[in-house]
Simulated scan of single mutants.
Amino acid sequence: MAMRSHTVVTEFLLIAFTEHPQWRLPLFLVFLSFYLATLLGNTGMVILILKDRQLHTPMYFFLSHLSFVDICYSSVIVPQMLAMLGEHGTVISQARCAAQFFLFTFFASIDCYLLALMAYYSYVAMCQPLLYVTIMTKKAHLGLVSGVHVAGFSSAFVRTVTAFSLSFCGNNEINFNFCDLPPLLKLTCGDSYTQEVVIIVFAIFVMPACILVILVSYLFIILAIMQIHSVGGRAKTFSTCTSHLTAVAVFFGSLIFMYLRDNSGQSSERDQVVSVLYTVVTPMLNPLIYSLRNKEAKEAVMKSPSRPKAIGRS
Rank of each mutant, 00 (worst) to 15 (best):
I200Q: 13
Y121T: 00
K139D: 13
S230G: 07
L219V: 02
N172W: 03
L181S: 09
S192H: 15
K139P: 10
Y113L: 06
A156F: 06
I199Y: 06
Q100F: 05
L223T: 02
V145L: 07
A116R: 04
A140D: 07
A235D: 08
V124F: 04
S230D: 14
I199N: 01
I214N: 05
V198Q: 09
S217N: 02
Q94R: 03
A224Y: 05
Y121A: 02
L223R: 04
Y193F: 12
L215Y: 08
T137G: 13
L187M: 14
A163W: 08
I214H: 09
S167E: 15
K186R: 12
F101S: 00
V231D: 10
E196S: 12
L114A: 00
G232R: 11
P129W: 06
H141Y: 15
C210D: 09
C210A: 14
L185I: 10
P183I: 01
V216W: 12
S165D: 10
L212D: 12
S155D: 12
Q94M: 11
G232A: 03
S165V: 10
A125P: 02
S93I: 01
G190C: 13
H149T: 12
F176C: 00
P129E: 04
L215D: 05
F168V: 03
L166K: 10
V198N: 05
V161P: 05
A108Q: 07
Y218F: 09
T194S: 03
F220K: 01
F220V: 00
I228S: 03
S167V: 15
L114F: 08
V133F: 09
I211F: 13
D191L: 03
S192V: 12
G170S: 08
A99I: 05
F157H: 11
N172A: 07
I200D: 15
T194F: 04
L184F: 12
N171M: 14
S167K: 14
V161N: 09
I214Y: 04
Y120W: 15
T188Q: 15
S230L: 13
F164W: 08
T105I: 02
L130V: 06
L215V: 14
F220P: 00
Y193T: 06
V161T: 10
L219N: 13
T162N: 11
Q195A: 06
F176E: 09
I221L: 04
C189R: 06
A119R: 01
A235Y: 12
F107I: 02
Y113V: 07
L115T: 01
A163Q: 12
Y121N: 03
E173W: 05
F178E: 03
A156M: 13
F101T: 00
V148T: 08
H141K: 02
S146W: 14
